[in-house]
């Protein structure tokens, strides 16, 4: 295992028009760790994740995945040099992404969703792709739902299919963008359980979440963002334990009903 971090973010700045959403973020995600990004809404945590997934292009700064530059490399004088997209796609293949809205393709079954990229992008034979997809689906406990369309699945099941879809491509980093935020409370558990298993298997994970309880128990590191700045980072017991940063205190106050009560 190399000493390079799985994800390294350096002085990342992202602006939408005149608003600066990320004001120079530095962050390192170590291999095999679960890093949880928390913070109030509008703090920029989702934008940071989307920059790492290259769904948004940052305005300044650099991102490295396993030591390789993503999207832009640093030139001799520190200027940003755009990398060819083939290069970028190669680096991006290390990353799997799970969305808040699941984003399953409605015209494909659960199996079809998981198989699609294996066949279209990885050029696998359909038979092999389906076999691999079935393994992934059974890992998330949905082998009996393989033939169902997204509209026939509950939110929790859809999100588990989305996780299987990302995992089927064998990424070594998984990004989660508020994976349980659009789920009913009773469906949240099944998704968190899958994520917990994944964490135990040693997957490198970066999770934007409002589930403070999950962050505290599964997270190896907590990163607290507020108004585009990284305020605090550290082990859960450091971030949540007393004495606490005043902003974290305020933040946790609003989350008493989300499992944060036990931390206070």
């Amino acid at each position: 295992m190399s000493a390079k971090p799985a994800i390294k973010v350096e002085k990342l700045v992202k602006r939408f028009g005149k608003t600066t959403v990320l004001e120079g973020i530095d962050l390192a995600v170590e291999r095999g760790q679960v890093t949880c990004l928390i913070g109030p809404s509008g703090s920029g945590k989702s934008t940071l994740l989307r920059c790492i997934a290259l769904l948004e292009e940052a305005n300044e700064g650099f991102i490295e995945i396993n030591g390789e530059p993503l999207g832009f490399a640093s030139g001799p004088n520190g200027e940003r040099v755009r990398l060819p997209s083939s290069e970028t796609q190669k680096v991006r293949a290390h990353i799997g992404m799970v969305f808040q809205q699941f984003n399953l393709w409605p015209h494909m079954t659960a199996l079809g969703n998981v198989t699609e990229a294996l066949v279209t992008v990885r050029r696998m034979l359909r038979k092999d792709a389906e076999q691999r997809a079935m393994t992934q689906l059974s890992n998330v406990g949905l082998s009996d739902r393989a033939g169902h369309y997204p509209s026939e699945l509950s939110g929790g099941q859809q999100q588990r299919v989305a996780i299987a879809r990302a995992l089927a491509l064998d990424p070594d980093i998984m990004l989660f963008d508020e994976p349980t935020s659009s789920l009913d409370p009773e469906l949240t558990g099944e998704v968190l359980a899958v994520m917990r298993d994944l964490a135990e298997s040693g997957m490198t994970m970066l999770v934007v979440t409002h589930e403070i309880g999950f962050a505290a128990s599964v997270g190896s590191k907590i990163v607290f963002l507020d108004q585009g700045k990284l305020i605090v980072e550290g082990k859960p017991e450091e971030v949540f334990g007393k004495p606490r940063h005043e902003r974290i205190d305020q933040f946790l106050d609003t989350y008493l009903d989300r499992g944060a009560a036990t931390l206070l």
Binding site: L55, Q89, A93, F99, V121, R165, A166
Partner: peptide
């Protein structure tokens, strides 16, 4: 975006 993330061009 989901398609982009799994590498579809």
């Amino acid at each position: 975006e989901a398609a982009q993330c799994v590498g579809l061009n």
